[in-house]
């Protein structure tokens, strides 16, 4: 992506940002998405390195991409009840969820 294209995308995103308070940001406020590898590493502190849970908390390493996306989307909408995942899933955009699921499933399939 060239610099001009990046700029256009950023400006486009900027228009969708309507209410950034002094204490929080919108889930869609980022101009450029973090790398999938960095995004997904934020799952490992609770789900274990590479999603390979030691138990108790759900294992992610054996899940196919679509299953991870479905779980996250359902947590986000509240369709799937949870103690904490709904609060976390709401912090991610749909494209971030897709990117994380794709990266993790592919990395664990190797």
């Amino acid at each position: 992506m060239g610099l001009k294209t990046t700029l256009k995308v950023c400006l486009g995103t900027a228009f969708t940002v309507f209410a950034i308070s002094a204490t929080s940001v919108s889930a869609h406020a980022e101009g450029k998405m973090a790398s999938p590898q960095l995004l997904v590493s934020n799952c490992f502190n609770c789900h274990g390195y590479m999603g390979d849970s030691a138990g108790v908390i759900d294992e992610l390493s054996s899940l196919p991409e679509r299953r991870i996306v479905k779980k996250m989307v359902d947590f986000k909408s509240g369709e799937k009840p949870s103690t904490i995942m709904s609060r976390i899933a709401k912090g991610y955009s749909d494209s971030e969820i897709e990117a994380m699921a794709k990266y993790l499933a592919a990395a664990n399939a190797k």
Binding site: S21, V25, A27, G91
Partner: peptide, 24 residues
């Protein structure tokens, strides 16, 4: 009990994403 947040970098530093996170 728990508290959680997803943070993104903004021009004000690390800020929690609105509508996400919070206390149990």
């Amino acid at each position: 009990i728990s508290v959680t947040a997803v943070y993104k970098q903004s021009d004000k530093g690390y800020m929690p994403v609105a509508g996400a996170g919070g206390l149990s």
